[in-house]
Simulated scan of single mutants.
Amino acid sequence: MGGGVTQATVLVLGLDNSGKSSLLNALRPPEQRASLTVPTVAHKQDQFQSGGVSFSAWDVSGASRMRALWERHYRYANAVIFVVDAADHLRLVVAREELELMLAHPDMFGRRVPLLVLANKSDASHALSATHVAAALGLERIADKPWHICACSALTGSGLADGIAWLARQLREQRSNK
Rank of each mutant, 00 (worst) to 15 (best):
M1H: 12
G3W: 04
V5G: 08
T6K: 11
V10I: 12
V10D: 01
L11I: 07
V12W: 07
D16L: 05
L24E: 02
A26N: 07
R28C: 12
R28F: 11
P29Q: 14
P29Y: 05
P30Q: 08
E31R: 14
R33N: 09
A34C: 14
L36E: 12
V38T: 10
V41W: 05
A42K: 04
H43Y: 15
D46L: 13
G51P: 02
G51V: 09
G52H: 05
V53R: 01
S54R: 09
S54W: 07
S56Q: 14
S56Y: 12
A57N: 01
W58P: 00
V60K: 02
S64R: 07
R65K: 08
M66K: 01
M66T: 00
A68K: 03
A68H: 11
E71G: 04
R72F: 14
Y76E: 15
A77R: 03
A79M: 06
I81A: 09
I81C: 10
V83E: 06
V83G: 03
L92W: 04
A95W: 08
R96L: 13
R96Q: 15
L99V: 04
E100D: 14
E100W: 13
L101P: 00
M102W: 00
A104S: 15
H105L: 12
P106E: 15
P106G: 14
D107S: 15
D107G: 08
G110Y: 11
R112D: 14
V113D: 05
L115R: 02
L116Q: 02
V117Q: 04
A119S: 07
A119P: 05
A119R: 00
D123R: 06
S125D: 15
A127L: 07
L128R: 10
S129Y: 02
A130Q: 04
A130R: 06
H132M: 12
A134G: 03
G138Y: 12
A143F: 07
P146S: 09
I149V: 12
C152S: 06
S153T: 09
T156Y: 08
G157N: 03
G157E: 03
G159H: 05
L160M: 07
L160Q: 03
I164T: 03
A165Q: 10
W166I: 02
L167M: 09
Q170H: 08
E173N: 14
Q174A: 12
R175C: 02
S176T: 05
S176P: 01
K178I: 11
K178S: 14
